[in-house]
Computed example of a mutant assay.
Amino acid sequence: MTIPIVLISTDVREADGYRWHATPQTYLDAVREGAGVIPLGLPNFGDGVDLDGLLDRVDGVVMTGSRSNVHPSNYGKAPSPANEPYDPDRDRTSIDLVRGALAEGLPVLSICRGMQELNVALGGTLATEIQELPGRMDHRAPPSDAQEARFAIRHSVAVRPGGLLHGIVKSARIDVNSLHRQAIDKLAPGLRVEATAADGTIEAVSGGNPNAFLLGVQWHPEYWFRTDAASAAILAAFGVAVREYLARRAGRPGEVIATD
């Protein structure tokens, strides 16, 4: 039986004298265990990769979060040192990856920076350093070297009734973590708001194509998928969408596709 494969975005980092294209294991574990599919990291080669050909051979895409922010030049604004760090190599690859995946109708799950990339890829804009804006909460991670403290559940979000996310988590309100300085400003055409924080920050979005799974969340379900019901449900729903896509692509829509 065929096990689905999904592309997962990576960051570019300098360490130990090398230039790494990598992603944290928390995402890999969540995709493999929580969604039941195999993650395949995509190096950030920009237009040096035949994305169309590559997307023909995979069954879904996960856009990961990152400490870096989307460079403002990608949505028509000027950069600021206060908004660093940036990862321009990731931008050059990930934005085209999102567009290509949506054009192919692949299931897409976008997390934190990944949701921001999704919005930018479709023509939206971002607000930077939102903790400095009037009336906004501080959505940054608490200062700590302990990951469990940084990723701790911190606030609730209101889930749009009848939306994609509502159907997944089966609740009008869920509690989430928060580790970001950027957020959606102008919502991209074709995206719908699925959840908001108390200060109005857009916390989740979906796409308008009912036949293609597209969900973006501003928080990090990958960190708590083993213990948090909503996080587990999001990963599981993505896994179901990926297996259904693979079955349709193989011309066997009724077939049960193996999980890892």
Score class of each variant (00 low, 15 high):
A247M: 01
D52V: 08
H220G: 14
A204D: 12
L40T: 12
Q218T: 13
L187D: 00
T23Y: 13
D96S: 13
A78W: 08
V205Y: 05
A241S: 12
I234L: 04
E117D: 14
A204R: 09
P79H: 07
H220A: 11
N74S: 04
I111W: 06
H180Y: 01
A232G: 02
R154A: 15
A212M: 15
A237C: 05
E194G: 12
S178C: 07
G251H: 04
V256W: 12
E222S: 05
V242T: 02
A241G: 03
E129C: 03
E132S: 14
L215H: 13
N74D: 01
R154K: 14
A212S: 14
V256R: 01
G162A: 14
R67A: 15
A127K: 07
A121V: 03
M115Q: 08
G76Y: 13
P253M: 00
V256C: 02
P189Q: 07
I257P: 00
G216P: 01
L215R: 03
P72T: 02
Q147E: 14
L42W: 03
T23R: 02
L51T: 05
T10I: 00
F151C: 04
S178A: 10
T93F: 09
T10H: 06
D228Q: 04
A236K: 06
A241Q: 01
D47M: 10
P85H: 02
I257H: 04
G100N: 02
L7K: 01
R67S: 13
A22Q: 07
P88L: 11
R32H: 14
A103R: 13
R99M: 02
I5V: 13
N209S: 15
L54H: 13
V98Y: 15
G254P: 11
M137R: 11
A247R: 05
S171P: 00
D96A: 14
V37L: 09
